[in-house]
Design a protein around this nucleic acid. Structure first.
Lengths: 140, 140
DNA sequence: TCTAGGACCTCTAGCCACTAGAGGATCAAG
DNA sequence: CTTGATCCTCTAGTGGCTAGAGGTCCTAGA
């Protein structure tokens, strides 16, 4: 268990430059180095990085992850805060889904009404030029 | 109709620095200036900027908008390309909605299973640490 | 023991679509 | 002629990486 950065990358699915980037912003702490100045990682780093990757996949922002990692480090504390971060994130996702669904509606309508003729008759261009043509508000 | 940039901003809902930014990247052409070097806009710019803003609201990227604007300028051409840009965008939106919906599922499950106790029992932290706990793939 | 080439290092710059702020000039009303 | 709102340019920052230059290290095979 004395992994070079490429091996850590393979085991976690996080790209090498991204790992270095996470170290730079303090999401991962600086690991020990070989005499030749190369990073060597152990099992805790694999787990921590998996946690980070998974959180990112679930759409959490780096600042949220920072807090979640801190919490994970003090297992006796209340999970109230973790709950609140996750709930806020969920609300945000709902907001985004709603907004994209509204967009989807407008776009579908635009595309379906397009007669595939000339630009001057095209509903796509027409609708883009005039928000009044829209059924929903889609300010995001 | 000899509007300063602030008035153009008010009429289109696009912020002043953003208008200057659009000029810089060539989405808007450089307008005439007063003797004192201030920009003055006319009606065509109001329309063009409304088109841009609306397209952005509908989630089109700047490069797409550039093409759409070019098309709008040649009304006799076929609208095939506009159609294709819009369809591609629609596909992308569908992809995003699907991905967010999967996330939503996982997050909801996480939050619902959280017993609001201590971190060491918290499902949120647990799930984040282990993708194996997830029902869906959510690599985006 | 030498060597090849893959993996590693740091550093800077770029991506997208803006946004913020400094420091100064101009405009229009009173 | 003054005031203060608006305008100007320029640089740098946002988030979360990604790309590339130019160099060093490690390790397996000859």
């Amino acid at each position: 268990m004395n992994l070079p950065i490429g091996e850590l990358s393979r085991r976690t699915g996080v790209k090498v430059p991204t790992i270095r980037f996470y170290e730079q912003i303090g999401l991962l702490s600086a690991p020990p180095r070989t005499e030749g100045n190369q990073r060597r990682y152990g099992k805790p780093e694999v787990e921590r990085l998996n946690f980070i990757r998974h959180s990112r996949e679930l759409g959490f922002e780096v600042e949220d992850i920072r807090e979640l990692l801190e919490m994970a480090a003090s297992p006796q504390a209340s999970c109230h805060q973790a709950d609140s971060i996750a709930r806020n994130h969920l609300t945000e996702i709902d907001r985004r889904i709603a907004s994209l669904t509204a967009l989807r509606g407008e776009l579908t309508r635009m595309v379906e009404e397009c007669g595939h003729g000339r630009i001057c008759d095209c509903r796509i261009i027409e609708v883009l030029a005039d928000h009044g043509e829209c059924v929903t508000e889609h300010t995001h």
